[in-house]
Simulated scan of single mutants.
Amino acid sequence: MSGAVETARLMDAVYRHQRHFYDVTRKYYLLGRDHLIRELKPPAGGDVLELGCGTGRNLIAAAKLYPDARFYGLDISRHMLETAKRNIENAGLSDRITLIEGDAANPSATEGFGVPGFDRVYYSYTLSMIPIWREALQAGASRLKGDGRIHVVDFGQQQGLPRWFAKLLFSWLKSFHVTPRAGLEAELEAMASQSEHGLRFRRLYRGYADYAELTRN
Rank of each mutant, 00 (worst) to 15 (best):
K41M: 09
A84F: 13
G54E: 06
A190P: 01
I76H: 02
R134G: 10
R200G: 04
L204I: 14
H197T: 13
P67V: 11
R26V: 15
R38W: 08
F21H: 14
A141K: 03
F118Y: 11
V121A: 13
T215R: 10
M129F: 03
G112M: 07
Y208I: 15
R206G: 06
E196R: 09
E89W: 01
L99M: 11
K174S: 03
R96V: 05
T98A: 12
R86H: 12
E196L: 08
D75I: 10
I130R: 00
A166Y: 08
L81R: 11
P107H: 09
Y66T: 13
A84H: 07
I37T: 12
A166M: 13
N106F: 06
R70N: 11
N90P: 00
V24M: 09
G160F: 14
L127R: 09
L40H: 12
F71R: 07
A62W: 05
T98D: 00
E101T: 06
S128D: 15
A104T: 08
L169S: 02
T98C: 04
L184D: 14
L36Y: 01
S124M: 04
V121D: 12
R203S: 15
Q194I: 03
E6D: 05
M191L: 15
I97L: 03
I60P: 01
Y29G: 09
K27Q: 13
G140E: 01
G146F: 03
P116N: 08
D34F: 02
A136W: 05
A105V: 11
W164P: 00
G114R: 08
T7D: 04
L81K: 09
V153M: 03
L36E: 02
A109E: 02
E6V: 07
A141R: 08
H79I: 04
A4Y: 01
L40V: 04
S175C: 00
Q158D: 10
I150K: 08
K27S: 06
I150E: 03
S77F: 02
D68M: 05
M1T: 10
A44Y: 12
G148L: 06
L173D: 04
F71V: 00
L59W: 03
N90E: 12
P107T: 07
K167L: 08
L36I: 01
K41I: 01
S142N: 05
P42H: 06
L36F: 08
G3D: 15
T98E: 09
R134V: 14
R143Y: 09
P43R: 08
I37Q: 09
F21K: 03
G140R: 02
G146E: 15
Q158K: 15
M129N: 15
L199T: 13
R19S: 07
Y29N: 10
E187R: 11
R86F: 04
T83H: 00
K27A: 01
D154E: 14
D47F: 00
L93N: 08
A212Y: 14
D103G: 03
G52N: 01
L40K: 06
Y208Q: 12
W172C: 00
D34L: 10
N87W: 05
T98I: 04
T83R: 10
D23C: 08
T55D: 05
A190C: 02
A61N: 00
E185A: 10
Q157G: 07
C53N: 12
K64D: 10
I97P: 14
R143W: 10
L59P: 03
H17V: 09
P42S: 07
M11P: 00
F170K: 13
A91W: 02
